[in-house]
């Protein structure tokens, strides 16, 4: 369709995603975890605009959100993939309308996004621990400083470790997925309605 891209204020609504991520209203959290605002914006956008615009919007959102976080893991690959996939769904004969379907798409999307982060942290942790083991005298590793001491190298490796991902990470993943899937039928269906009307209007 690519009709919404002609409305600058529609594109500007994407700025709400980093703003809401920063504001993180306390009353809209589940177990202290906020929803994935990027998923809630990207899903209706990609369903209206198609795979190419969806992937581009995913990349733009990924860059915006990554700028708020350190470079330890990126949301960009997950969001590009989701934008492209949801855009492909829009090409089907029957357009996605049902609120339940929107909720399910948001659930799978959030899960995919979170798992892409988990995968990056696992790979990063594995790579860095391998580097410390190979070079125990490296500055991050260093030799044992105390006697009887413990090799501080593996302890100093920062970031999500496998055991932490199984504990706090799993709680975070489930809470964010559930909250986003619960909010999606309400928020995404409103956005879909508004944007489809705008798209039809601009074509007409």
């Amino acid at each position: 369709m690519a009709a919404l891209s002609r409305h600058p204020w529609c594109v500007a609504t994407a700025l709400l995603v980093p703003l809401l991520t920063l504001a993180a209203p306390a009353w809209l959290r589940l177990g202290g975890v906020p929803p994935a605002w990027a998923v809630l914006w990207l899903l209706p956008w990609a369903l209206c605009e198609g795979p190419r615009s969806g992937a581009l919007a995913g990349a733009a959102l990924g860059l915006l959100l990554d700028s708020l976080h350190p470079a330890s893991a990126s949301l960009l690959p997950g969001l590009v993939l989701l934008g492209w996939w949801w855009g492909r769904l829009a090409r089907r004969a029957t357009p996605v309308r049902g609120t339940l379907v929107l909720g399910l798409l948001a659930l799978v999307g959030t899960l995919t996004l979170e798992l892409s982060l988990v995968l990056q942290w696992l790979l990063r942790g594995w790579w860095r621990s391998a580097a410390v083991m190979v070079s125990p005298e490296s500055p991050s590793g260093g030799a044992a400083v105390l006697d009887p001491g413990v090799h501080p190298g593996p302890l100093a490796l920062s970031g999500w470790h496998g055991i932490d991902l199984l504990g706090a990470g799993l709680h975070l993943l489930l809470a964010q997925t559930l909250l986003t899937a619960l909010l999606a039928p309400m928020l995404c269906s409103l956005q879909l309605l508004l944007w489809r009307q705008l798209g039809a209007g601009s074509r007409g």
């Binding site: 001491g149 413990v150 302890l155 920062s158 932490d164 975070l172």
Partner: peptide, 21 residues
Amino acid sequence: RQGLLSGIGTDRPLLRFLEKD
């Protein structure tokens, strides 16, 4: 006794000691 305070994603960080005892 020295240690390394490491965040683990929960409200309470983990103190990993550099000594066995």
